[in-house]
């Protein structure tokens, strides 16, 4: 993390607050705090906040803010971050059916790591993963903090079509594909929960700064949840992050 946060211009309507030049949990926490501080301050003339790995892009209305005035106001908010009472991040619990046709690369991950399928699943479901940012495609979470014991390189030949909900591993990263897309991740399972649905009241389920926890379900449970997701009655489970 930088000693002094950088405030950078991104054209006549954008300002980038850059907290550091690495991917780290403290930087991500600071970005989350800054987002909450700006929202709490209720500043008018700001249209959108885009948190990323190490910075926050602020869209503003130049008819309401001069650059200097906006930097000054944001620096004041930054100075007050330590005294800010923040709600705990949210942990979203995602049910996953591991292996079989839903996780065709689980055998390869086992071969690569020398672990049994049960061990891989145990390790994958034993941690809360921090959502560093959402990007790439609508709703795609960049998750951090996977156990190195199940790290597996990407596919040599990326697939052209990966079904929505696929849970994968790429190096020491893990993630979920929100929509059908091409990709080179090792697929170990699938969640019936829709991370992205443009016609839902909350189109994107996850948010940067929160956490994801996977848990293992069987085929019957998968079908039950899938049915509820399709008719719109499924309530995704959440809890507070315990630290």
């Amino acid at each position: 993390m930088y000693d002094k946060t950088k405030y950078l211009t991104a054209g006549d309507k954008g300002l980038v607050i850059e907290f550091g030049n690495e991917i780290s949990k403290p930087i991500n926490e600071k970005i989350r705090s800054m987002v909450l501080a700006i929202e709490k301050a209720g500043l008018t003339g700001l249209s959108e906040l885009v948190p990323t790995y190490r910075s926050l892009l602020v869209y503003y209305d130049p008819l309401q803010w001069s650059y200097q005035k906006l930097v000054q106001r944001l620096q004041e908010l930054e100075g007050e971050l330590n005294s800010l009472q923040l709600p705990q991040p949210k942990v979203t619990l995602l049910p996953v059916l591991y292996g079989g046709e839903y996780g065709p690369d689980l055998p390869f991950v086992c071969e690569n790591t020398g672990l049994t399928p049960e061990e891989v699943i145990d390790i994958h479901t034993s941690r809360d993963y921090l959502i560093y940012m959402i990007g790439f495609t609508p709703g795609f979470p960049y998750l951090g903090g996977m156990d190195e014991r199940i790290a597996t390189p990407r596919l040599q030949n990326p697939r052209t079509k990966i079904p929505a909900g696929s849970v994968g591993i790429a190096g020491s990263q893990t993630g979920v594909y929100p929509i059908e897309s091409p990709g080179g991740w090792q697929l170990i399972g699938r969640t019936p929960v829709k991370l992205y649905d443009p016609h839902r009241a909350t189109p994107v389920l996850l948010a940067a700064g929160d956490y994801v926890r996977f848990y293992s379900i069987n085929e019957t449970e998968y079908q039950e949840i899938l049915k509820k997701c399709l008719d719109g009655t499924y309530q995704v489970q959440c809890r507070e992050y315990q630290g």
Partner: peptide
């Protein structure tokens, strides 16, 4: 390390040629 992109951002990848990002740009 990936950060946000606005409309009009001029990206310069390793080949040294500018790319001006427009309406359908990716967010980061």
């Amino acid at each position: 390390i990936s950060d946000g992109i606005v409309m009009g951002s001029v990206q310069v990848p390793g080949h040294g040629m500018p790319i001006v990002m427009m309406a359908d740009r990716q967010t980061t």
